[in-house]
């Protein structure tokens, strides 16, 4: 498995775990207060820390396993894979933001807008890594 594919797996896992933590907290607070929980800075900070720790530890581990590949620059196929994955995930981000804005126009909930945009960012980022993994395995 190429280093960049391993890297995409690490990032996917960190995004899934981070997202599960973040929205798990939001769900719990929402259930406790009986309405949509407002965005809380410490939760966002913890989410970021989870993401950074998992990605750094994961990348150190895969770099130790394949040090030569870790140092290598992207080749032409990898650049094409990255470009295509980024292009497609951009559509997801745009669609998610538009949907969130649409929801805001009907609900006037700033909190829902925040979560919608934040979730769109998470999903599009995760999709980018999933697309990379997919394109590594099929033709580009």
């Amino acid at each position: 498995m190429p280093f960049q594919e391993k890297s995409a797996w690490v990032m996917s896992v960190s995004l899934i775990l981070g997202g599960a933590y973040y929205f798990g907290i939001v769900k719990t607070i929402t259930a406790e207060i009986g309405q949509l929980a407002p965005p809380i800075l410490p939760t966002v900070v913890l989410y970021t820390i989870i993401l950074v720790v998992i990605s750094v530890v994961g990348h150190i581990a895969i770099s130790i396993l394949t040090p030569r590949e870790a140092d290598a620059p992207l080749d032409e196929r990898e650049k094409a894979i990255f470009q295509r994955a980024s292009h497609l995930s951009g559509y997801l981000l745009g669609a998610g933001v538009l949907l969130s804005l649409g929801v805001y126009l009907f609900s006037y909930s700033g909190d829902a807008l925040f979560y919608g945009v934040f979730a769109s960012l998470m999903i599009s980022q995760l999709a980018e890594y999933v697309f990379r993994i997919l394109f590594y395995r099929v033709s580009v």
């Binding site: 190429p2 590949e69 290598a72 080749d75 032409e76 196929r77 990898e78 590594y136 580009v140």
Partner: peptide
């Protein structure tokens, strides 16, 4: 040629 082994495989 300056590409990865995986690219040669592909």
């Amino acid at each position: 040629i300056g590409v990865t082994r995986q690219t040669i495989i592909a």
